[in-house]
Design a protein around this nucleic acid. Sequence first.
DNA 1: ACTCACATGTAAAGAGTTACATGATTTT
DNA 2: AAAATCATGTAACTCTTTACATGTGAGT
Lengths: 185, 185
Amino acid sequence: MDVKELCLGVLSMNEATGYDIKKYFEKSFRHFFAAGYGSIYPALADLSKKGLVECREQAQDKRPDKKIYQLTDKGREAFRQAITKAKPRHKIRSQYLVLMYFAHMLSPDRLRDIMFERVKEIEELIEWLEEGSQEDQHRGMPGVEFTIGFGLHTLKAARDYIREHGDELITGVEERQHPTTLRVA
Amino acid sequence: MDVKELCLGVLSMNEATGYDIKKYFEKSFRHFFAAGYGSIYPALADLSKKGLVECREQAQDKRPDKKIYQLTDKGREAFRQAITKAKPRHKIRSQYLVLMYFAHMLSPDRLRDIMFERVKEIEELIEWLEEGSQEDQHRGMPGVEFTIGFGLHTLKAARDYIREHGDELITGVEERQHPTTLRVA
DNA sequence: ACTCACATGTAAAGAGTTACATGATTTT
DNA sequence: AAAATCATGTAACTCTTTACATGTGAGT
């Protein structure tokens, strides 16, 4: 289940251009699956070559022609297969947590900045999801609500954890870096 | 901040073999940064070539020689640089949530299986982290406690969300797939 | 004057995964 | 008898990221 297959998924709902698909990714999968043009356009070219999507070109002046893609029957079937067989993995790759792990090697100021920035990012995502949940484009797609709700719930948990334990970590680091002389050895 | 840099991080605490490093990854970074031999061994070879680590070989019979790596001063400095400059990203790539998003295209049985499996995986991770938090190898590393606590908190949130909203999703999918004939159109 | 939205793509580099290859010892 | 632990690695493949390349029109 990679960018190619998610493109099929997006196209299973509506025909779209590469540009549209990128926007859809941003709107809907932002918190669990990101992709840029550099992976979407080649993916579409590949799907086209394999006969899973077809495209019709729409001329535009002063702009590159629009290439509007739609699923073929083969593509629809391929997507069904993909989601039927895909293993439900959930991978996290977090440089942020690596930094927290090695917090004792950072200055308390840098540490504070990182945590602040992370909380800000999380809050932006939460806002984004809350806006998205009010759109009613996803009537009839119970999964949309579920994934938005899941995102909101886990992001809030992450934010709250940092808020509640961030100072503790900073204090711990300060103590380690400047041990008090008064200590019962 | 990739596997190479995390290897430096692990070696900043203790000398180790590639095999040891893999085990350390599993014990400590499992919930936010996974890596296999296929990325660790080449990483060490590369770091060695760049003079960031040194290795001494220990002969063993009936086994390949052990290669015990340790940081050089250059390597120690490189790691300090890396964590000072690294952007604190946190990436999630979740096929699991993709499947939930397109839940309406799955059979309720498959959906139930996926959620059950996911909850089981989360529970295993939680247990793992709870065991790890009782080890006292991480004295003096306040970041270790923080990352374990963070993992526990967010994993529990994820588990609880699925428990509380999973049935709702399944019901929604069933309704969409077999609409009742009794409906006020 | 600048940035955002529209609209397409390529090329090179970087990273990670998977399968392969070897093989004794210990535990279940 | 099978599986896990110890211990190394490579090669091929897949996938993603980043930077480049091009250009208009509308809004601030």
